[in-house]
Simulated scan of single mutants.
Amino acid sequence: MPIDVERAVAAEPHSTRISWSHKDVQLYHLGLGAGVPATDPGELRYTLESRLHVLPSFATVAGGGMGVIGGLSAPGIDVDLAAVLHGGQSVETYRPLPAAGTATQTSRVAAVYDKGKAAVIVLRSEAADDDGPLWTSQAQLFVRGEGGFGGDRGPSARPASPERDPDHVVRCGIREEQALLYRLSGDWNPLHADPEFARLAGFDRPILHGLCSYGMALKAAVDTVLGGDVARVRGYGTRFAGVVFPGETLRVRMWEEKDGGGEGEHGAGRVRLAVTAVERDDAPVLADTVIEHT
Rank of each mutant, 00 (worst) to 15 (best):
R175Q: 14
R175M: 12
E177G: 07
Q178R: 02
Q178P: 01
A179D: 03
A179I: 01
L181P: 01
R183G: 04
S185M: 03
D187H: 02
N189W: 09
L191N: 10
L191D: 10
H192L: 10
A193W: 04
A193G: 15
P195G: 05
P195D: 07
E196Q: 13
F197K: 03
F197T: 13
A198R: 00
R199P: 00
L200M: 12
G202L: 11
D204N: 13
D204K: 10
R205Q: 14
R205Y: 06
P206N: 12
P206D: 10
I207D: 03
L208E: 07
L208F: 03
H209G: 07
G210K: 06
G210L: 04
L211R: 05
L211K: 04
C212R: 00
S213L: 09
Y214T: 07
G215Y: 04
G215C: 07
D223H: 04
L226S: 00
L226K: 01
G227V: 11
G227K: 08
D229K: 11
V230H: 02
V230C: 15
A231C: 10
R232I: 02
R232Y: 05
R234V: 04
G235Y: 05
Y236V: 04
R239C: 13
F240H: 13
A241Y: 06
A241F: 06
G242Q: 05
G242T: 07
G242I: 13
V244A: 12
F245N: 00
G247V: 09
G247Q: 08
E248S: 13
L250F: 09
L250H: 08
L250G: 07
R251M: 08
R251G: 09
R253D: 15
R253L: 04
M254L: 15
W255V: 02
E257F: 12
E257L: 13
E257R: 14
D259W: 03
G260T: 03
G260M: 11
G261Q: 02
G261T: 02
E263F: 10
G264I: 07
H266S: 13
A268H: 13
G269I: 08
V271I: 15
R272S: 14
E279K: 10
E279F: 12
R280M: 03
R280N: 07
D282P: 12
A283P: 01
V285W: 03
A287I: 09
A287G: 14
A287S: 15
